Amino acid sequence: MLVSPAMSKDQIYNESMAKIADFSFDAQVADVFTDMIERSVPGYRSIITMIETLTQHYAQPGSTLYDLGCSLGAATLSMARGLKAENCRIIAVDNSAAMVERCRTAVGRKHTCASVRVVEGDILTTEISNASVVVLNFTLQFIPPKERAPLLQRICDGMRPGGVLILSEKVVFEDDHLNGLLFDIHHDFKRAHGYSDLEISQKRSALENVLVPETIPSHRDRLLSAGFTSVDVWFQCFNFMSMLAVK
């Protein structure tokens, strides 16, 4: 179950635009984000559901859990549902004021979320300490590539032994045929969920300079270099995947 009780339909790119601005997580996107991501990211709901199970398995008593780039709080609330360890807290961080406002409302509706704090801030400067579970759910892809390794290093340094990072990303493939095939299949997925070719094309243009995907081996190598000892993909659907990195 996701966070929005009344899901607004994403129609941001349904009319032809003379100039397409870079994609941003503004109030317009926040209003339709749940519909947008469910219709754009294959397997998104499954990943959110399993974050609850992974939290139950990895959360350690007396530790802190982080949702970095929390958007509307779907992963945050999944973590809260799965949190069985005692004396823990969850910190959800996002740099979009519109997302944070709606996330705080969603968290406030849940009587069991007293241990959750939603913070408007930059995840690149957020202090990570005493962590047992950290979630980067389709967040790293929006971080400038040169900033990704330092961020993952800080996360690993601030994590308890046995803690886990859940990293979900859109990816590309080194094999040109496979990359092209999954690119086309992803667009078929979006068409099947009601997006027109115009919407798909215009959103792709808006994201071109904002969302920079990488290969699975690139993610794995960076995580291992940061100090994680066990790293692998636990979920993949087309060109979207989620990895577990255990310290």
Rank of each mutant, 00 (worst) to 15 (best):
L2T: 09
L2R: 08
P5S: 00
M7E: 05
K9A: 15
I12A: 01
Y13I: 02
E15C: 01
I20L: 12
S24I: 12
F25Y: 12
D26F: 06
D26Y: 07
V29T: 02
A30W: 02
V32L: 03
T34K: 04
D35T: 04
M36A: 15
M36R: 09
I37T: 14
E38H: 11
R39H: 15
G43T: 14
Y44K: 05
I47W: 07
I48N: 01
T49Q: 14
M50T: 08
H57N: 10
Y58K: 09
Q60D: 15
Q60P: 12
Q60F: 13
G62D: 10
S63D: 03
S63P: 00
T64Y: 04
L65H: 00
L65V: 01
Y66K: 00
D67A: 06
L68D: 03
G69W: 06
G69L: 08
C70Q: 07
C70P: 05
S71Y: 11
S71I: 11
L72S: 02
G73N: 08
A75L: 09
A75C: 13
A75W: 11
L77M: 09
M79P: 10
A85I: 04
A85D: 09
R89D: 08
I91T: 15
D94N: 02
D94S: 11
N95L: 11
A97E: 14
V100S: 04
R102L: 03
R102I: 05
C103K: 03
R104V: 02
T105G: 06
V107N: 05
K110E: 10
T112R: 00
T112E: 14
T112I: 11
S115M: 15
V118I: 14
V119D: 07
V119Q: 08
D122W: 08
T125S: 15
A131W: 09
L136S: 02
Q141P: 14
P144R: 06
K146M: 07
A149M: 11
A149L: 13
P150S: 06
L152T: 04
Q153I: 05
R160D: 00
G163D: 13
V164R: 01
L165R: 05
L165E: 08
L167I: 14
S168N: 10
E169G: 05
F173G: 00
F173P: 03
D175H: 07
D176I: 12
D176H: 10
L181Q: 13
H186M: 05
H186L: 06
H187C: 12
H187N: 15
H187S: 14
D188L: 15
D188I: 14
F189G: 04
A192F: 12
S196C: 07
D197N: 12
I200F: 10
Q202D: 03
Q202C: 02
S205I: 01
S205C: 06
A206G: 15
L207I: 14
E208Y: 06
E208I: 04
L211T: 01
V212A: 06
P213I: 14
H219R: 00
R220G: 03
R220C: 08
D221Q: 15
D221H: 15
L223W: 04
L223E: 01
S225I: 11
G227I: 10
G227Q: 11
G227A: 10
F228N: 02
V233S: 00
V233A: 00
W234F: 13
F238M: 08
S242T: 12
S242M: 10
M243G: 00
M243Y: 04
L244T: 05
A245S: 11
K247D: 01
K247T: 02
K247L: 06
K247V: 01
